[in-house]
Structures are given as C-alpha cells and as structure tokens.
Simulated assay, not measured.
Amino acid sequence: MVTTIERWSGVEVRALREAMRMSLREFAAHLGVSERMISKWEAGRENIRPRPVNQAALDTCLTRSDADTRARFSRLIGTDALLTAGEAEAVKPIGSDHVRHSVDGSLMALVEGSVFQAGPGNTPLWLPSYYIDVYPVSNQEYAQFVAATGAHTPRHWTGGTFPADLAEHPVVFVTWPDAVAYAEWVGKALPTSQQWEKAARGTRGSIYPWGDQATPAKCNVRENGIGNTTPRDCYMSGGSTYGVHDLCGNVWEWCSTETSPGRYELKGGAWTSPFVRATPSSFNDAAASMCDDDTGFRCAVPA
C-alpha cells in the first residue's frame, strides 16, 4: 500500500517538501500557496493543521508523487509504506520544457502537474502534466490542415490561401468545430479552460501572464489602437512563466470546456477587447457556430 496521512500537520508538510527535494519557493509554487504559508506550517510543526482545501492539495501531491519520493517521505515520517507493483521503477523524464510536435512542428511548452489557483476566486485545483502550444495556431499552420483535409478556408483568405503578410498571425474566422477538426487532425485537443488558465497564470494565480501589474502595452488590446491581429511573437515580454505567449489579447481562443449545450468557453481577450477583458481568469463563452475576426485557438496534449 501507499502512505496516506489522516490529518496533515507542519511535520508532514516539511517531510513531503524534503522528500520532493524542493525549496520553500518551489514547494509553494507546486502547491499554489505562498512561501509564507509553507513557513508558517513548518514552524508550527505538530501544532498546526492546514485548512481542508490545503490538506486535499497535499494529499494529491503525495499520491501523485513518484515511488522514490513516497519512499523518502515514509522514512522521514517514520513509516514503512510499501510501494505498489511497478512503482519502484524510476520515473522517466517527460522531456524538455519545450518540444516540437511531430505532426505540425509547432512549439509546445510543458506545464507540470500541480495545484494552481483557478478563476476569479483563486480556487486551488489540481491538473496533471500537459503540453500546450506556445502560440495560437497561425494562418500558415492552418493552411497545412486545409491542404491535407480539404476543409473550407477562413473567410478572410482569398484564392484558397491566406494573405502573405498574415502567415504568422493567428488564424481567425474559425468556429469551434473548425478548431476541433484541426486539433484532431494534428493529434491534439483544444485545452480545457483550466489548462489554458494555468498556462497563463502559473501556479500562484498571477493576474496576468507577466505578473500582477496591469500593463496593456504587453498585449494587443483595444487600448493600443492597432485595429487588427498581430504576429504571434509580437509581444514577447507578455509571456507566461511557462514561456507561453499571446495569452492576453490578439485573439479570443476556443477551449474544450462546454458551458451549456452548444456553447464553449473562450479565453484571453482580443484586439477588439478592452484590456480588462483580457484577464486570464475572466469568463467568456460563445455558441460553437460563432465565427469572427477576433477568434482563434491553440492546442494541448497530455504529457
């Protein structure tokens, strides 16, 4: 069987952090809480009990840890937990933080499994590891899909192809089914709204991908007066902690999360949106048939 904790105290918290070989900062980020909170728990030792929501997060971190980490944790708290069959094998690394997808050649970033702060209320949630496109799908990438499948072209294309100066701009005028069809063709999926949000906000619930400071100049939103999409790498200073870009402004992005029959979440705001709408925790949705000049998508895949 695997070690379980009936009720966490500061003693077990410190043991888990040391078993995972993480610094205070790293462990706090992994749990999605502040360093000060971790320090408070550890200093209180057996006299402090984290809140139930944090105990649940600690449970999840322990059960999802590899066999070596659980064995170290067992020794540190003085138990002799047995590992289930196969758990003694060394866990293979998922890969580098950024990889190229084998089908469309897109650059993807690794978002490691952990608790993160979700939504306007910063609710702690666990997500397993996944990869997400560093940039939204471009016109040039979408053209590969059209050529391979015979799918209809977006309405702003002429003569069956995109305007040359928009090759590296996000593709727009795509419905939710269009985005799903591309994702399935390339062997990926649309991200859930939670996957999208974690890639944008990190584990600590930053307000924006770059931090907590409201800086419209770091993204393509209405206030900047550009009046159209921009190349996907135009705002490199606006990237998230995972190295994912264009998560605020430029185009709204379809997610796989259905909000009601036939309606799906959109994330990120667009060049048509005021900056306040580009906050990654904000909610927006639309009918699957919606097709506009400020809506595109990116893809994700389990790690």
Score class of each variant (00 low, 15 high):
G211E: 02
T192N: 06
D212N: 08
R222P: 14
Q213H: 10
L190N: 06
A217D: 11
P170L: 01
G187M: 14
Y208P: 09
Q213Y: 14
W185T: 07
T215I: 09
A217N: 08
R204I: 14
F162N: 04
W196G: 07
T215A: 07
G187S: 01
G187D: 03
L190K: 00
R204Y: 08
N224K: 09
W185N: 04
Y182P: 10
T192P: 09
W185D: 03
E168C: 05
E197K: 11
Y208W: 15
E223F: 03
A199I: 11
V171Y: 09
G205D: 04
Q194R: 13
G187W: 11
H169D: 02
H169V: 03
V221R: 00
D165N: 11
E223V: 01
P209A: 04
A183T: 10
W196N: 04
P163W: 06
P191A: 05
S206V: 14
T175P: 07
P209M: 00
E184R: 09
L166S: 00
S206R: 04
P170F: 02
R204F: 11
T203A: 06
Q195Y: 10
A214D: 15
G202M: 06
G202T: 04
L190V: 13
V180F: 12
L166Y: 13
P170I: 09
C219Y: 05
E223Q: 05
Q213I: 15
W176K: 01
F162I: 14
S193R: 02
A199E: 01
A181T: 13
E168I: 05
V171P: 08
A181M: 08
A167D: 13
F162G: 00
V180G: 04
V186T: 15
